[in-house]
C-alpha cells in the first residue's frame, strides 16, 4: 500500500507532463519522496502515515506537475495532447477512407465522369478535412478548458488526501487501443456512407455490362426521417469509444455508460425495423421489374426468404454484439478486483 501510494502519486504527476519528460521526472520525484521519507523516519520503518504526510507536504500531484510545466499556458495541455493527436488521426483516416470509397463507387458506376468525380474528390478534401480537424480541436479545447477550470480546482487541491489518488491503469482491465479505434473508423465510415451516398446502398444492376440502376435496400421515402436517429446512435457510439480510449481501462462508470448507450441503440434499431419503414418495401417487386428474378421461381422464393430473414438476423447479431460489449466490460472490471 505504501509503495502503491507513491506509485500513484508519481503517476499523477507524470501523466500531466509531456511524454518525453515523464520517465526522468518520475525517477526524480520518486527519489525525492524517498529522501524525504528517510529524513522523516531517521532509520525506523516507514509507515503508511509517513508516506501520507510526505505526499501532503509535496502537495497535490496536479500542482507539482504545474510547477514542472512552468507558467506555460496550453490550449490543449500535455494531459490531453497525446489523446488529441490520436483522435485527430483517426478522424482524418476515416474521412479519407470514406471520401475515397465514395469516389471509387462513383467511378465504378459511371467511369465516363471520372474527371468530374476526381475534381469533386479533391474539393471534398479541401472542404471536409479542415472541418473535421476543426471540430476535433474545438472539442478538445473545450475539454481542456472545463477540465482545468482553475478556480474550482485550486480550492479542491488544498483538501486532497493521498488515499484518494487515482489508481494506475491495471493491465487486466486494459482496453486494447485497436478495438475502439476500429469501431470509430467503422462508425465514421457508416456515417459518411449514409449521409453522402445512401443511394448506392443496394443491388447494382448491370445490363450488357453497362450499369443501369440500383434496387435500393433502404426505404428512400422515409430515409431522411430515420437518418437522424442513426446519426444519433453513431454519435453516441463514437463518444463511447472515445471514452474507452481515454480511460484505457474498464471501470464501473464506463460499463454503465456503455450499457445505457447500447440499450438506447438497441431500442432505436427495434423501433426502426419494427416500423417496417427502414427497408425498401418494394424490394422484391423492383427485382422482378429489373429482370433479376422471375416471380414464382425457386430463386424468387430463396431471395424473398433471405430478404425477410435479413432484418431478424441482422437485429439478432447487432443486439448480441452490443450485449457482448457490455458483458466483456463487466467481466474485466470484476476480474481486476
Amino acid at each position: 500500500m505504501k509503495m502503491e501510494m507513491i506509485d500513484r502519486y508519481v503517476y499523477g504527476v507524470t501523466k500531466r507532463l509531456p511524454e518525453e519528460q515523464r520517465a526522468d521526472i518520475g525517477d526524480e520525484v520518486r527519489g525525492l519522496i524517498e529522501d524525504m521519507l528517510d529524513e522523516r523516519v531517521q532509520g525506523r520503518d516507514v509507515t503508511e502515515e509517513d508516506v501520507r504526510e510526505v505526499l501532503l507536504e509535496l502537495g497535490h500531484p496536479r500542482s507539482l506537475a504545474r510547477k514542472y510545466q512552468g507558467n506555460k499556458k496550453y490550449i490543449i495541455g500535455p494531459e490531453l495532447y497525446d489523446f488529441y493527436v490520436l483522435i485527430a488521426k483517426i478522424a482524418l483516416i476515416s474521412t479519407v477512407v470514406g471520401l475515397t470509397a465514395i469516389f471509387l463507387i462513383k467511378v465504378i458506376l459511371s467511369p465516363i465522369n471520372i474527371i468530374d468525380d476526381f475534381v469533386d474528390y479533391i474539393v471534398s478534401f479541401i472542404t471536409t478535412i479542415p472541418m473535421v480537424i476543426g471540430w476535433v480541436t474545438i472539442g478538445f479545447v473545450l475539454a481542456e478548458y472545463f477540465d482545468e477550470n482553475k478556480f474550482a480546482q485550486i480550492k479542491l487541491d488544498n483538501n486532497w488526501d493521498p488515499s484518494n489518488l487515482t489508481p494506475i491503469p491495471d493491465p487486466k482491465r486494459q482496453i486494447k487501443r485497436c478495438e475502439p479505434i476500429t469501431s470509430i473508423v467503422i462508425y465514421v465510415f457508416v456515417i459518411v456512407m449514409l449521409v453522402f451516398s445512401n443511394e448506392y446502398f443496394g443491388i447494382w444492376i448491370f445490363q450488357q455490362g453497362e450499369f443501369s440502376g440500383i434496387v435500393p435496400f433502404l426505404n428512400e421515402a422515409e430515409y431522411s426521417s430515420f437518418l437522424i436517429l442513426i446519426l444519433i446512435v453513431c454519435g453516441f457510439g463514437i463518444l463511447k469509444e472515445c471514452l474507452k480510449l481515454f480511460y484505457e481501462r474498464w471501470t464501473y462508470s464506463l460499463v454503465t455508460f456503455t450499457a445505457i448507450v447500447n440499450l438506447v441503440s438497441i431500442t432505436i434499431f427495434f423501433y426502426l425495423l419494427n416500423e417496417n419503414r427502414f427497408w425498401n418495401p418494394d424490394f422484391m417487386n423492383e427485382l422482378v421489374q429489373n429482370g433479376i428474378v422471375t416471380n414464382g421461381s425457386d430463386n424468387y422464393q430463396v431471395i424473398k426468404i433471405i430478404w425477410e430473414q435479413m432484418t431478424l438476423w441482422g437485429l439478432v447479431i447487432l443486439v448480441l454484439g452490443l450485449i457482448w460489449d457490455v458483458v466483456t466490460g463487466f467481466i474485466k472490471v470484476r476480474k481486476a478486483r
Binding site: 521526472i25 526524480e28 520525484v29 525525492l32 524525504m36 507536504e57 509535496l58 502537495g59 500542482s63 507539482l64 510547477k67 514542472y68 512552468g70
Partner: peptide, 12 residues
C-alpha cells in the same frame, strides 16, 4: 525552499 519548488527550478 520547498522541494516542490526547487526540483522544477533545477530542471529549468
Amino acid at each position: 525552499v520547498e522541494p516542490g519548488t526547487l526540483y522544477p527550478l533545477l530542471r529549468r
